[in-house]
Design a protein around this nucleic acid. Structure first.
Lengths: 138, 138
DNA sequence: CCTAGCGTCTGTAGCGACTACAGATGCAAC
DNA sequence: GTTGCATCTGTAGTCGCTACAGACGCTAGG
């Protein structure tokens, strides 16, 4: 419900507001060629189109889902070559899902170890803190 | 069950083998003053004591549990001041535990989102891949 | 037309926690 | 003595940003 739309394009601040991506980060994405170079005003300020906005949103959502920059780059390459090969995207997603599951499993172990440690600790100013002991023990 | 023990101290490679910490990382820890400077052989090679070994193991175990370097630094400071205040260590552990729990919760959401996306995708070379659609949709 | 004041510009350096060299030595066994 | 692995220092790279500094663009009000 903005009136700016595509009359003169979005300046970088609008892009940031719309997508929630930090201004510095948008410029960073341009530098690493994840985002294409936008037009400029006569004075040199960036002017983004609606397509730019969509692409940046895609990137942000993908980042939120934990995809790495080069994975996103690969997905965008597929999008750019008109025929999107769904199989590859699916494979990437499944692979990514597996690594997320693994990370969860690791964190669960960690959670248990930490809560065991915390439970054993008497919490007072006692010499020979059991947490420290645990960490020092071979 | 090594015969090296403390006769002439451990060279850096032995420290690395015993603790599983990369050699480069051990030197890095010395540079950032997380590990104290060890003795040197006449030729200039590092010679570690058993105490060094214990300290490095402590660091590695703490890192495995996801403690940040400055947290480990704080814990070691407490250890170094003879009276270990168990209360503070307990508080750090509990706080850390909370952040691990939160990370797990976030990853769970992510897991669901990814598996939903993967499930919707027909996986064939179909135009309009639903994963891509999802990522592009506002 | 001028000015205030925000938005934006470029370029560079920093973060955390390592990792990866290059090129020069040390050291132990034969 | 020589071979050859281990270790040395110092610096730069990684990932994905973030944080400046110092200069300029742009717009609204007077």
């Amino acid at each position: 419900m903005e009136e700016i739309t595509n009359a003169r394009g979005y300046p970088i601040g609008a892009m940031s507001r719309e997508t929630g991506v930090n201004i510095e980060t948008i410029r960073y994405y341009e530098r690493i060629e994840l985002m294409p170079k936008p037009d400029r005003t006569p004075g040199g300020n960036r002017q983004y189109s609606h397509e730019h906005l969509q692409r940046l949103s895609f990137i942000r959502r993908s980042r939120e889902l934990g995809f790495r920059i080069d994975e996103i780059r690969a997905m965008l390459r597929m999008v750019d070559q008109d025929g999107v090969s769904c199989g590859e995207v699916h494979a990437m997603t499944v692979e990514h899902l597996a690594s997320v599951k693994e990370k969860i499993a690791q964190l669960r172990k960690l959670e248990r170890a930490l809560s065991d440690m915390a439970a054993e600790c008497a919490k007072g100013d006692i010499p020979d803190c059991p947490i420290i002991e645990t960490l020092f023990r071979a």
